[in-house]
Design a binder for these strands. Structure first.
Lengths: 175, 175, 175, 175
DNA sequence: GATGAATGAGGGTTCATTCAT
DNA sequence: GATGAATGAACCCTCATTCAT
């Protein structure tokens, strides 16, 4: 019975993730439920309201990012390389979802905390790369993080696309 | 009453621009009207429906951009400098609005045409800069345009902010 | 100036008559005004509100009918023949309009009075025909009037169409 | 909850039928819902929009008519008698509703088909009566059907009222 | 627990009517 | 007196949420 419940929760958030990705935040609860093969009632059993669902999805995505990012940061690689790996990972993650949901999620403390943590993690890596003199030192780490966010959350971003290349070239420390 | 009507139309689109900028596209017609100090009926007299209002605002913004961009392009300056001037102008224009409204405006032919024209204009300037060897030649102009769009439509973009600097450094042709 | 006013009033009621005939009662005041080549304001100067316009049109039509009917009745013809002439006249008159407008006009005293007068006139003619033994005597005149109304207000009724023929054959006194 | 839903659907169409009969097609969805003791949302769950409600009511009425008419036609009675029975049945049915709703229902294929079927059924019965020499042969069956429609859809029509008598006398074949 | 029917507030839109020009 | 812009109540419809089954 517990496993059933978990399964349903999973079905719902998977359906929601997919629909939000495809069609933006303008998807009704009914549609999400039926895409998950369940009734609305069941959806509401798992998520008290729409905001909770959005937050959960945003938080899940951020947590997956954080888990990966922390694991990478713990491996003692050069900062620039960590950055590359994180960027690659991000472009595979539906991080754009967080942007899509942003409006409905702005005031959720969980999401705010996770976002702050993610930004802090990135900032630390950027700082490391600056100390290692592979990333130009004249930009405050926070701003580099902003740039990474923008580049990585573009719809259709890929780790090796031209825009990322340009960004990286712009960030690299002069020889 | 022609002048009054024009004034009201201006009041409405100003209110709409402001509210959309502040709170995204999810603002009701009622709210826009009353922010303009008018009744809904008046709003509907000037804009036949919600889509028309969104389109008008998006189109106006794009037109202002195009007007400036074309004037600059006609001045026979080096491409790189035109780019700088356009970027500066863009960051003063509420071009982010066009992004905000994008979803509700997707199928409007006017907006599609203007967007295409704006992209073509930018692409031409980029190409010129590439011919003049001030902008790296290994990125297709269309993609550079994508990058400019992303950078310029960030909320809070400024012409001299760090992110734009990074982007420009990434785009500059190697000596 | 007086004649201008009369002319405008005429333009309005002509336009209204035409539009109501073509498209039923669901025509807006704005449309009527602009079909008359005037502004709504002018329409409202001549008719205090929508009900007044409907009533005027209904009353005009009924008055024209009454004028004709009374003239005929005054000519000392046999009742059956008067009936025939009235039917013919009715099918040329837009009497169906009165039906079309009926819903919006139900409570207007003027219209009620005129309708009653029209019915009374017809009933008198029917009674005369009954006295003259050309119209069957077993149906109360009021009911014959009801039948005539139904037949004559059909859309597309003509004085010599099959349905009128059947009705007249049904009404004729047995030899 | 299947049974409740069915019951509610019934409540809604009963309320709609009643209100449309009393006050014409100009009744708001809100009013219909609350006359049924339900919220608007429930109404819209059962009928996707106003047109669907009108159509359903019109179609139901027509179907009831057709069911009866076909059963009668299958009984091998003389055509004239079938006609009498159908007329009697019609005057008990709220067929006038179909007329009332006609405007809002004009383009509904279901209603168009049912109307055509009803007319065809009546025409066949008329033709039979003409072959049996009980109904005058000089009127095309389609037109007789038009006459029947007019007579039966009068508000307040009854099978034995004077107007029906007159019509039947008009239709009967001369001896 | 799951289901999906019911609810009703709120959004977009129309149109009779008023009123400044 | 004519004009047409402005008004806002009222309509149709959607959808987040609740609740009976």
């Amino acid at each position: 019975m517990r496993s059933d419940a978990r399964r349903n929760r999973e079905l719902i958030s998977a359906a929601a993730r997919e629909l939000f990705t495809e069609r933006g935040a303008a998807v009704s609860m009914e549609e999400i439920a039926s895409a998950a093969g369940l009734g609305v009632g069941t959806l509401y059993r798992h998520f008290p309201d729409r905001a909770a669902l959005l937050e959960t999805i945003a938080a899940d995505t951020l947590e997956r990012f954080l888990a990966f990012g922390r694991a990478e940061a713990a491996r003692d690689l050069p900062g620039w390389q960590v950055l590359l790996r994180i960027i690659e990972h991000c472009t595979k993650l539906p991080l754009a979802l967080v942007k899509t949901l942003a409006e409905g999620v702005a005031t959720a403390p969980t999401v705010a905390i996770l976002t702050a943590e993610a930004d802090a993690l990135l900032a630390a890596v950027v700082e490391q790369a600056q100390r290692e003199r592979t990333l130009r030192p004249d930009i405050p780490p926070r701003e580099v993080v902003g740039l990474l966010n923008v580049m990585v959350c573009r719809p259709g971003a890929r780790a090796d696309d031209h825009l990322v290349t340009v960004m990286l070239d712009g960030l690299r420390a002069a020889r």
